[in-house]
């Protein structure tokens, strides 16, 4: 079982009407984490290898090579943690 805290520095709920989450990956682990995520999620498109539009079990994500991931349309933080556990396996 992966410990997602090894990869994640911080999670923030976005400010605005849309309630999304932004996952900040630990700088030293971001490349490893992104590689895992890109392997498990479905890549829908990418631009300049800077941003990857992904889908994981119907949940839309946008992963940035800077180490930040925007996750949309989730019920709550527990749902997010569940998805991250699977993605970072």
């Amino acid at each position: 079982m992966v410990n997602i805290e090894d990869y994640i520095a911080r999670i923030e709920e976005t400010c605005g009407e849309e309630k999304h989450f932004i996952v900040f990956l630990k700088h030293e682990k971001k490349d490893e984490a992104l590689a895992k995520i890109l392997k498990r999620a479905q890549i829908e498109r990418s631009i300049s290898s800077v941003i990857f539009e992904l889908n994981f079990r119907g949940v839309p994500l946008r992963a940035y090579v800077s180490g930040k991931i925007l996750v949309r349309n989730l019920k709550d933080k527990n749902a997010l943690l569940g998805i991250l556990s699977e993605l970072l396996q």
């Binding site: 849309e18 946008r62 940035y64 930040k68």
Partner: peptide, 13 residues
């Protein structure tokens, strides 16, 4: 895009 996407994309640059 929502505003956070725009901010994250610009941050990458």
């Amino acid at each position: 895009f929502d505003s956070h996407d725009v901010a994250l994309f610009l941050d990458s640059y």
